[in-house]
Nucleic acid binder design. Structure first.
Length: 640
RNA sequence: GCCCACGUAGCUCAGUCGGUAGAGCACAUCCUUGGUAAGGAUGAGGUCACCAGUUCGAUCCUGGUCGUGGGCUCCA
C-alpha cells in the first residue's frame, strides 16, 4: 500500500499527503480560514463526502461551500437531522422516517400519537438552537446491514427498519450518522458539526403519506427553512410575505375580479364584471390568434350520452372525475374534455387527405370532479374553460403540426410575459392503445421537439391514458411552475371512433389526433397572470384602462365628453365623478392598479385636454384626448 | 379522499373563563368644491358558517355537515 497519495486540488495543483489524510484538513490548508468556515463538505473525485473523510487513494479534492446550491442543500439536510433529534428529545416515543432537504428548506416526517401544534414548533426550535450552540460533531459510521437492522429494531424505529429491508440486495453496508447520541440512517454527507447551523425557522406541520402512497399511514411532516446566514433567511421570509400579498385569491377580491362562493359550491368560479372582462379580452385574443393559424372555431354540447363516453374510454378510465346526469331515463356524461364533439364534427362527412389537417378550436368549458382537498383558488377548480383544439391530420403531417403548436405556445408565452420549461410524458400504467401506437406517438412528439431545437425533460409514465404528451410549464414571477400548455398525441380515439380519410390512393386511412391547449385552463392562467403582475395588468389586458377623475363637480361635463370620446375609440374607461377630493380618488384608482388616471380640472376644461397620471406615479402633463388615444393604441398593439 | 388548523359586519381582525358582540377600513346621509395615495360629522350593518347534542341559557363546550387555508395523493 502506498505511503503517500497524490491529491489534485481545484486549481490543478498536485500535492502529496499521507495515506489516510483527512479531507477536511487538506481543504482547510489550501484555503484561507475565513473561507473554510463556510465549507460544509468536500468533493472527492466528484463525489460529496464529509470533511472527516479519510483519503486512501490518489484523488481530485475540492471544497463544497455553503454558498453553492449543493452546499446549502447539505446544510439543510443536517438541519433536518438536528430537527429530528430535537423532536425526539422533546417528545419521547416519536418515530422518525425520512427528512431530506428540498428546494426552499427541509422537512422531516414523524410518526407520533399526538399531533404537533405551532407551540410545539417553537419548543422544537428552541431545542434545535441548544443543539446548534453545543456545536456537536456529526460522526459517520459504516456498519453492516444486519447491525443497522438490529440497532433500529431495538430502538423501535420501524420506518428505518423498513428502509433498510428495502435496500437492494447487493448493498452490504449502510452509513449511520450520530450527533450527541442521536443516531440516524443516512447516506450523508453532513456538515462537520451543529455549530454551523445558525439561521433556520420551522414553518408548518402538515400530513404526508409514508413513502408518498395514499394507502400508507399518514405521518406528520414538519417543514422548515434554513440558510447560511440570518440575512439570507430574513430575505427568504420577506419573499414569502411578498407572495402572500400577491396571492391571486386576495387580489381577486381586492380588484373585484371573481369570487368562489360557499353557497354556490366549492371549486366553482363566479366572474365579476372586471374579471369577466379580463377573461373576455384573453378569449378574444385567442380566437383571433387561432383563426390566424388556420383553426376553425367550433362549439360542442355540455352533456353527451354516456354511451359515447364508454366508446371513447372515458367511462372506463376517467369516470371518477366525471359528473353524470339523467335525461328521459337516458344517462348523460357532463363533458370533462372537449374531444368527443370534435370527432363527431370530423365524422359528419367523408374526408379527403386534401382536407387535412383539420384544426377544431373550442373555448370549451369542462367539469371535472376533483377531490375536495385539491381545490385551490383559480388554478384547481371543478369547472373551467380550456382553449382546447383537436387537430386531425395524416401521420406525415404530425411533425409539422406539433412544431407549429410548440411555436404557438412560445409566441403566447412571450405575449403574456412568461418563461417556461418543456417536459415529455410517456405511457402511464393505466392506458389504452397498442404498444406500436404509443411508440409512434412518443417518437413524433420527441422528434418535433428536437427539430424545433427545444430543450426538454422526460417524465416517465406521466402521459394521458390515451397518449403521450408534451407539457409546457410556465414559471411565474416567484419561480413557481404551472402546467398550462400541453400537446397530446392520440392514435386511439380515431381508432375507437373509426375516423378515416380517403388518401391519394383512393383507400381509407386513419387520421392521427392531436389534443392541445395553449394557455390550458383560462381560470388557472388568469390566476397565474394575476400573481405574475401583482394585479397590475399590462394596459392591453387591464379591464379598466383609464379612470377619469374630476377635481370638482363643475368639471363633470368635460369629463362626460372625454369619456364618450374614449369609449368611441374602444378604450375601457370609467368616470369617477364622485364628490370626493382628488387625492382620495387618485388613491382608489391607484389601489385598483388602473394604468391611467386622467385628471380633469379647470386647466383641462380650458385647454380641452386631459392630464394622464400613470400608475407608477408619473404625470404626463396636459395632452390632447386624441394624443392619449394614440398612446393607448400604440401600447396595446405591442401587448404592453 | 387523507392529516392538521381555521370559519365573528362587505374586508382585516378584537372579544365573550357559557348570560345573543366591538374596532379600523368600506357603505349611506349631511357638511365641505377641494389639483395627483385617505377632509369632517352622523348613521346603518352581524341567527358569531350550518345542523344536532349538553345546559336554565351556546357565538363560546361536544359531535356532525359545509367551506377555507397549509400539506399529502391527484391534476388543466
Amino acid at each position: 500500500m502506498a505511503e503517500r497519495i497524490q491529491i489534485t486540488l481545484p486549481d490543478g495543483k498536485q500535492v502529496l499527503h499521507p495515506f489516510g489524510a483527512v479531507v477536511g484538513k487538506i481543504v482547510a490548508d489550501t484555503d484561507d480560514t475565513a473561507k473554510f468556515r463556510s465549507t460544509v463538505a468536500a468533493k472527492v473525485n466528484g463525489v460529496p463526502v464529509d470533511l472527516s473523510y479519510r483519503l486512501t487513494a490518489d484523488a481530485v479534492v475540492g471544497p463544497i461551500d455553503v454558498a453553492t446550491p449543493e452546499g446549502l442543500s447539505i446544510l439543510r439536510h443536517s438541519m433536518s437531522h438536528v430537527m429530528a433529534q430535537a423532536v425526539q428529545d422533546c417528545f419521547p416515543g416519536v418515530q422518525v422516517s425520512i427528512g431530506p432537504s428540498i428546494e426552499d428548506g427541509f422537512y422531516y416526517d414523524f410518526d407520533y400519537a399526538e399531533t404537533f401544534t405551532p407551540q410545539d414548533l417553537e419548543k422544537i426550535e428552541e431545542r434545535m438552537r441548544q443543539i446548534a450552540a453545543a456545536d456537536i460533531p456529526f460522526e459517520r459510521r459504516e456498519v453492516s446491514r444486519a447491525e443497522a437492522l438490529a440497532l433500529f429494531q431495538e430502538k423501535g424505529e420501524t420506518y428505518k427498519v423498513e428502509l433498510i429491508n428495502d435496500l437492494p440486495s447487493d448493498v452490504q453496508t449502510v452509513s449511520l450518522y450520530t450527533e450527541d447520541g442521536y443516531v440516524d440512517l443516512c447516506r450523508g454527507p453532513h456538515i462537520p458539526s451543529t455549530g454551523m447551523i445558525r439561521a433556520f425557522k420551522l414553518l408548518s406541520v402538515a400530513g404526508a403519506y409514508w413513502r408518498g402512497d395514499e394507502r400508507n399511514k399518514m405521518l406528520q411532516r414538519i417543514y422548515g427553512t434554513g440558510f447560511a446566514t440570518q440575512e439570507a433567511l430574513d430575505d427568504h421570509l420577506r419573499i414569502l410575505e411578498e407572495a402572500r400579498k400577491r396571492d391571486h385569491r386576495r387580489l381577486g377580491r381586492e380588484l373585484d375580479l371573481f369570487q368562489i362562493n360557499e353557497e354556490a359550491g366549492a371549486g366553482l368560479v363566479i366572474w365579476h364584471p372586471k374579471g369577466a372582462l379580463l377573461r373576455t379580452i384573453i378569449e378574444d385574443w385567442e380566437r383571433k390568434e387561432h383563426l390566424k393559424r388556420g383553426y376553425d372555431i367550433v362549439i360542442g354540447p355540455q352533456i353527451l350520452k354516456a354511451e359515447l363516453w364508454k366508446r371513447s374510454g372515458h367511462f372506463d378510465h376517467y369516470r371518477d372525475h366525471m359528473y353524470f346526469t339523467e335525461v328521459d331515463e337516458q344517462s348523460y356524461g357532463i363533458k370533462p374534455m372537449n374531444c368527443l364533439a370534435h370527432m363527431l364534427i370530423y365524422k359528419s362527412k367523408i374526408r379527403s387527405y386534401r382536407d387535412l389537417p383539420l384544426r377544431y378550436f373550442e373555448l370549451g368549458t369542462v367539469h371535472r370532479h376533483e377531490k375536495a382537498g385539491v381545490l385551490h383558488g383559480l388554478p384547481r377548480v371543478r369547472q373551467f374553460t380550456q382553449d382546447d383544439a383537436h387537430i386531425l391530420c395524416t401521420p406525415g403531417q404530425l411533425n409539422g403540426e406539433i412544431r407549429a403548436i410548440a411555436d404557438f405556445v412560445g409566441y403566447a408565452m412571450g405575449i403574456f410575459g412568461f418563461e417556461y420549461e418543456v417536459e415529455l410524458s410517456t405511457r402511464p400504467e393505466h392506458s389504452i392503445g397498442s404498444d406500436e401506437d404509443w411508440e409512434l406517438a412518443t417518437r413524433a412528439l420527441e422528434g418535433a421537439l428536437k427539430d424545433n431545437g427545444m430543450a426538454y425533460e422526460v417524465n416517465e409514465g406521466d402521459g394521458a391514458f390515451y397518449g403521450p404528451k408534451i407539457d409546457f410549464k410556465l414559471k411565474d414571477a416567484l419561480k413557481r411552475k404551472w402546467q398550462c400548455a400541453t400537446i397530446q398525441c392520440d392514435f386511439t380515439l380515431p381508432e375507437r371512433f373509426e375516423l378515416s380519410y380517403i388518401g391519394e390512393d383512393g383507400e381509407k386511412h386513419r387520421p392521427v389526433m392531436l389534443h392541445r391547449v395553449i394557455l390550458g385552463s383560462i381560470e388557472r392562467f388568469i390566476g397565474v397572470l394575476i400573481e405574475q403582475h401583482t394585479g397590475a395588468f399590462p394596459l392591453w389586458l387591464s379591464p379598466v384602462q383609464a379612470v377619469l377623475v374630476t377635481v370638482t363637480e363643475k368639471h363633470i361635463p368635460w369629463g362626460e365628453e372625454v369619456r364618450k370620446r374614449l369609449l368611441d375609440a374602444d378604450i375601457r374607461v370609467e368616470g369617477d365623478f364622485r364628490n370626493e377630493k382628488l387625492g382620495y380618488k387618485i388613491r382608489e384608482a391607484q389601489m385598483q392598479k388602473t394604468p391611467y388616471m386622467l385628471v380633469i380640472g379647470d386647466r383641462e376644461v380650458t385647454s380641452g385636454q386631459v392630464s394622464p397620471r400613470q400608475r407608477d406615479g408619473k404625470n404626463l402633463g396636459s395632452i390632447d384626448v386624441e394624443a392619449f388615444i394614440a398612446l393607448v393604441r400604440e401600447r396595446c398593439a405591442q401587448y404592453r
